[in-house]
Write a protein that binds this DNA or RNA. Structure first.
Lengths: 194, 194
DNA sequence: GGTCATCTAGAGACCGGTGTCTATTTGGAG
DNA sequence: CTCCAAATAGACACCGGTCTCTAGATGACC
């Protein structure tokens, strides 16, 4: 029917991710157009604003990260399941270094606090897979879902590995990091749910 | 001799820290002048640029954090010394929440990569206390200073607690966090220096 | 009281980035 | 071929933030 698409949404998000890789938080729409070889009009044709563009790229990266969660259910031992959940992060960083860097640009809390135009709903649902996984892990680990149990599991499976890996994101994560990450996750996962 | 100072360097840094507390990375010079009740000229009279201002406030916060390091030498057991080094961070966040938030605005690596006008030297020396402390801890823990040993100690005493605490910085760090932080630090500190 | 260095004071120039507006291209359908 | 919706194309208006520039205030010292 119409003029064929030259810059698809995914093309633009790829370029945005590339621009963030190079300029991190100071990436601009001009950087994206430079990567893409497109004028700014083509960007604004598909995205309401600069913020909506970069937030969309962030959301796509988060979803790709969540896509790894399936395999955790197959791990029998609860503590090991928590540890392996933690290990998903360094693995993701190695497999998708650009998306990993994209992940560090926003915090979920901030985006949800005032969502860029049109992304309110996408952000609403975004964290559900994490919530589900953590609840399931807490349930399996402690036999019930307590506030503290949930907090411990979140700390073990999410915050601890993230903190250890974060300073390196952008560069490759060395293999020797795996052992200490496992050790830290496991130590937290072994704590008692009082 | 001259006109008395109405806005000292420390006053301005306090205001910058306050502005960062409210606006985080998007804090502007105008936000600082609003807190301080001073015109922008008074800010630029003492600081070469916006970046130099905020970086100076960051450096002051880092130095205050380093000021806690002295007491670690007194701890006899090496592993415990590493764990207590890790615990300095949550303690600092509780005692100086505004400076803690300031700490999250820059990364040492980025600032050193291109230092704001006039801060090159200050940044050069800034990390020395950390380097000294970590070397000392690695030496005590493993009886020698290996690359891997140093990396493990850095991970245990610095990155792990930072990662666990980071998502909460800005809000108060709850007391129940101490136990998991200790557990994670200790687990990493107990790993072998191959 | 005059002098001078230092500092306050604030208006606005300047600059880079966002987002708009209009023109143009494209190819299938009639 | 003509028409139309969808998309590209890019010039530039606009805006918020940084930083400059000039004027004026202040008080120690002579």
């Amino acid at each position: 029917m119409v003029k064929p698409v030259r810059f698809s949404v995914d093309d633009i998000l790829d370029a945005a991710t590339q621009a963030v890789h190079q300029h991190w938080r100071s990436a601009t729409v001009a950087h994206v157009t430079a990567v893409l070889g497109a004028p700014s009009g083509s960007i604004y044709h598909r995205f309401a604003s600069r913020d909506a563009l970069f937030a969309s790229a962030w959301i796509r990266a988060v979803r790709r990260y969540h896509a790894q969660f399936d395999e955790i259910a197959a791990i029998a031992d609860p503590v090991q399941a928590i540890v392996e959940t933690g290990m998903l992060l360094p693995r993701f960083c190695r497999a998708n270094p650009l998306d990993a860097r994209m992940l560090t640009v926003f915090r979920y809390r901030d985006l949800q606090a005032d969502p860029p135009a049109g992304l309110h709903d996408a952000l609403q649902d975004l964290n559900a897979p994490v919530g589900r996984l953590l609840s399931e892990l807490a349930e399996r680990r402690y036999g019930r879902v307590s506030t503290r149990g949930l907090a411990l599991v979140a700390l073990a499976a999410r915050d601890t590995p993230l903190g250890m890996v974060r300073p390196l994101i952008g560069d490759p994560i060395p293999d020797w990091m795996d052992e200490p990450i496992r050790a830290a996750c496991e130590a937290v996962a072994l704590l008692d749910d009082h």
